[in-house]
Design a protein around this nucleic acid. Structure first.
Length: 183
DNA sequence: TGTAGGATCCACT
DNA sequence: GTGGATCCTACAG
């Protein structure tokens, strides 16, 4: 969830990737690299780590480790729920649906996340994660290899990508509710 | 001080 | 299915 200029936008997190601290070659913190940019990863969990990739896209991570343990979770995709109109406006899209925020670069754009949110606490401020009391069975979470980290060698093969099919989840609970056009 | 490369998206073929 | 956009960071000299 974000609140930018008083407008709330957000959704259900559906896709994440784990970055396992200093021994994960795909992580910016690999080899205990510690720079101005990665410094925030070494902080105690519960803060955001936002950075720019390819000069165009912001990527949103959640720092999850203890102090000095640079673990982070990359939020790769969400299912838009709150402030859809605003998100459509930000992304220039016309139709609501999963396609609105199904990529790490797109979701930050839709939510209005920028470098200003780097290092922000996630329980206090304009960027946060809520417990929506979703009960998600293990069978609903699929694991897969991570994306775009082929350079990381063997670490690229680690099943650190987690996908939650919110569409299926909804259909199971409320089979007759009006579904939105998706993809 | 300069340069190479990256956890991506979009338009075009 | 493929390639270009685009810019910050890290690292080398």
């Amino acid at each position: 969830m974000t609140r930018i200029d008083g407008v709330e936008t957000g959704g259900i997190i559906t896709e994440t990737e784990a970055y396992a601290g200093i021994r994960d070659r795909a992580s910016h913190a690999f080899g205990e690299r510690r720079t101005k940019r990665t410094e925030v990863m070494y902080r105690a969990g519960g803060v955001s780590y936002v950075y720019l990739c390819y000069g165009i896209h912001y990527l949103f991570n959640v720092v999850s480790g203890e102090q000095d343990i640079p673990h982070a979770i990359l939020i790769r995709g969400i299912y838009p729920v709150v402030g859809i109109g605003k998100m459509l406006e930000r992304t220039g899209k016309k139709k609501p649906g999963y396609a609105l925020t199904n990529g790490p670069g797109k979701l930050t754009k839709a939510l209005g996340i920028t470098l200003e949110h780097n290092g922000m606490k996630l329980n206090d401020g304009d960027l946060w994660i809520e417990d929506r009391k979703l009960i998600v069975g293990e069978a609903e979470i699929q694991t897969a290899k991570r994306i775009g980290v082929a350079y990381a060698g063997d670490d690229a093969l680690l099943p650190y990508r987690f996908v939650f099919d919110y569409q299926k989840h909804i259909q199971k609970k409320t089979p007759r509710s009006g579904e939105q056009d998706v993809q």
